[in-house]
C-alpha cells in the first residue's frame, strides 16, 4: 500500500503509523460527561469500504494525515495534512 503524503509524495505504508479512525468525533476538552468520551475512545464502526483514517508519517516528515481509503481493497484515494499546516490551519 502506498500513501501519497502531501509533503513527501508517494511513500510505502511501512513508513507510516496508523493512528486510528478519523471519523470518530473528539469531544471538546472541556466536556466532562463520561458518555461522549466512551463513544470517542471505544466505539468504532469498522466499515467495509471507503473510510477516513489517521496515519502519521513517522519515518518521514512526521506530519499527521487523514487518509481516505477503501478498507476492503486497500485502495488509497487521497491524503491530506491535519493540524497547523492542514487546510484552514
Amino acid at each position: 500500500m502506498l500513501i501519497p503524503c502531501p509533503v513527501c509524495g508517494q511513500r510505502d505504508a511501512g513508513e507510516f503509523f496508523y493512528r486510528g479512525d478519523a471519523t470518530a468525533a473528539r469531544p471538546p476538552l472541556e466536556e466532562e460527561a463520561e458518555r461522549p468520551w466512551v463513544e470517542y475512545v471505544y466505539a468504532r464502526h469498522n466499515p467495509r469500504g471507503e473510510h477516513l483514517e489517521f496515519w502519521q508519517h513517522a519515518h518521514g516528515c512526521r506530519q499527521l494525515l487523514v487518509v481516505r481509503r477503501n478498507t476492503e481493497t486497500h485502495e488509497v484515494f487521497e491524503a491530506r495534512l491535519v493540524g497547523p499546516f492542514g487546510e484552514g490551519g
Binding site: 503509523f17 493512528r19 473528539r26 476538552l29 489517521f54 502519521q56 513517522a58 512526521r62 506530519q63 499527521l64 491535519v82 493540524g83 497547523p84 492542514g86 490551519g89
Partner: peptide, 16 residues
C-alpha cells in the same frame, strides 16, 4: 512523541 504530535495536530490545532 507520537501521542503528543497527534494531540497537537488533531485535538488542539488552535494551540501555537
Amino acid at each position: 512523541m507520537l501521542h503528543l504530535e497527534f494531540l497537537a495536530a488533531a485535538a488542539f490545532p488552535e494551540l501555537k
